[in-house]
Design a binder for these strands. Structure first.
Lengths: 351, 351
DNA sequence: GCAAATAGCGCAAACCTTTGCGTTAAAGTT
DNA sequence: AACTTTAACGCAAAGGTTTGCGCTATTTGC
């Protein structure tokens, strides 16, 4: 209140001086160790009063240095502005906060070098644990964490041979179901627009797509397999390409919300109506999906659960230590939400 | 590489021992002060080599403690999962990172107590500066920062009588323009669904709306002024209420992206087609807006600029110190993007 | 050949907390 | 009265960096 002075921060020393006690006693009182160290109520009350008066704010750096704990989690995410990741970030922030942890958010832009850099930064900052959605091409830096007993949880995407806790979605099934849905509606010329290759999610989505085609005796057309990153432009360009093929597909499967935006743009430009002229199915639900000109049929991921479980796993590992042998691997099921962006093709178009 | 041992972290001391030099020399070499302190190339090279071998990672806590600088910024935002805030967060993260700063993200849920708590947390963590989108009802904690010479930039929302750097949008104008557009199209029964009251943004948007009505000689109908927070449910409930009025409005102005989602849901449920049955204008553009069943006419805010300028201002204040007298106040112009969610009413409906 | 300059580096304090171990004084026991 | 217990607190180290100041040994200048 009266504290209108300069930058000088109040420390335990200041409180100790003013209260006529030692720093250690003040520290103990302020940390609720009064009983344990049998400190008189008189001293305790005095310290609380003085701390309040001086508007004391503990220095988390010094505390972290001493305790080797910062009560901070590091989140490494490819792109926070992507609605899917933004939502998960929010959930993670929420549950971290509810458990007394704050969150440093790092963006990698799907760049492995950036990812390594961010992880090192987070190590430097002394975070107590990591939630990582890895780019997926490399895992040395993650293994380093594990070897040094720094708690890690992998989210959304997995890495081969890494012994970390994981929270994943069954992308194969999601993709399979979406493709099967299109096939059920009579489509056989089905294209897929993929995100960043070599990520586990993209690999599984591609496999699910292929398997559904195979299981239905539909030949795989390599020309219908396009896309290589999670960007609006990719959705746009690849869709343009697809619809201008000599033999364009009758249905497109866009494998992320952001790719979908690009696809919508391209289809609008080409004056193709969904679903009459072309069908569209997307991975990831968005708030706007039901209100699009063609309410979008989507594969919905359990985003709340993903974030919540990831935090839970991580905090458990931080607090109870690492069971060397049993790292949990949680796989959640996606759900096909059928709306109105797929038309029935009575006479299947032959290949 | 060979570092497969336990948790023991490598410090300057370890490097110093192995290199046969003092800790201070090692520190100076690793911080590029070789020339300044006239350290031989031989020593420098040796230190770099040893540091590499031991896989040294500086301890940012210790450094921050000593330097009183953490190269970390604190971002306080009402709701990261809101697409508008998510996008800005991304931009801020990007520019912070480009300038060598990392970012701790805090969420307030539009709760002033939570906001105060988060600010205190960030003080404890020793962030070098704050970007805050305040709830808006109280400013003591922000003034505390300013009095203690902790750099702050207010973003999106302002607070009365606070002498901080600010990056704002001309909400009055955005709202005025949107309302005027509706009036130009012949509407007179125009409702507005507001976000959280007593925030500067909401206040200004309400004023802009009212002024446009007044300037056109249209009477203000209090029944058409509804809403009190930025949530989907608010958009939904208030829209339901509006269209079921005895004399429902012919146009609705939804003052945020998320309110818009709720409004869309309500209108769909009520089987009201946009724009034929009712017109809709929204604050905030989203990627999906053009592809909705009625491509949405919106007031678009310059989100990239908002984030970029906020970071720039903040870092400038961090590095060049505070010009006590001249705190910049940047006001950006929003832009009306006309699409297809407003119909012309030839015969203005009388009140 | 002697003083002065310079190259090259180390000492120790400071940043703020936490905590193991000790100390002191009072109260209780026999 | 002598001794043990307990209440109530303090000392000092530790954690890893940075930096002002100071020290030595070698060069340079004349």
């Amino acid at each position: 209140m009266l504290q209108v002075s300069g930058k000088m921060n109040i420390t335990l020393v200041d409180i100790a001086k003013k209260a006529g006690l030692s720093v250690s006693t003040v520290s103990r009182i302020l940390n609720g160790q009064q009983r344990k160290y049998r400190i008189s109520d008189k001293s305790a009350n005095l310290v609380f009063k003085v701390a309040e008066e001086l508007n004391y704010k503990p220095n988390a750096l010094a505390r972290g240095l001493r305790l080797k704990k910062t009560h901070t989690l590091g989140l490494v995410v490819p792109d926070i502005s992507n609605p899917f990741f933004a939502f998960i970030t929010r959930i993670i922030q929420l549950h971290a906060h509810n458990n007394g942890y704050s969150l440093i958010v790092c963006n990698t832009d799907e760049n492995i070098e950036s990812e390594v850099e961010q992880v090192n930064l987070l190590i430097s900052k002394g975070v107590d644990g990591f939630i990582i959605m890895p780019v997926g091409t490399q895992s040395d830096h993650i293994e380093y964490l594990i070897n040094n007993e720094l708690p890690v949880v992998l989210l959304d995407r997995t890495l081969a041979n890494v012994k970390a806790g994981m929270v994943l979605v069954d992308n194969f099934k999601g993709s399979y179901d979406a493709t099967q849905h299109l096939i059920n509606k009579g489509h056989t010329a089905i294209a897929i627009v993929l995100g960043l290759r070599n990520t586990s999610t993209t690999n599984e989505r591609l496999e699910g797509y292929k398997q559904a085609l195979i299981d239905n005796g539909i030949e795989i057309n390599e020309k219908y397999i396009v896309g290589n990153d999670f960007r609006i432009e990719t959705g746009y360009i690849e869709t343009k390409f697809l619809v201008n093929l000599e033999k364009p597909p009758t249905a497109i499967f866009a494998t992320s919300d952001i790719i979908t935006v690009g696809a919508l743009k391209a289809l609008a430009e080409e004056n193709l109506k969904i679903p009459d002229d072309i069908s569209l199915v997307a991975f990831d639900d968005t708030d706007f999906a039901p209100y699009l000109s063609a309410p979008l049929t989507v594969v919905k991921q359990p985003k709340e659960l993903m974030g919540e479980i990831a935090v839970k796993l991580l905090i458990e590992e931080i607090q109870n230590g690492h069971d060397e042998f049993e790292k949990p691997k949680i796989i959640l099921k996606p759900k096909l939400v059928i709306r109105n962006s797929v038309v029935s093709v009575s006479k299947p178009v032959s290949i």
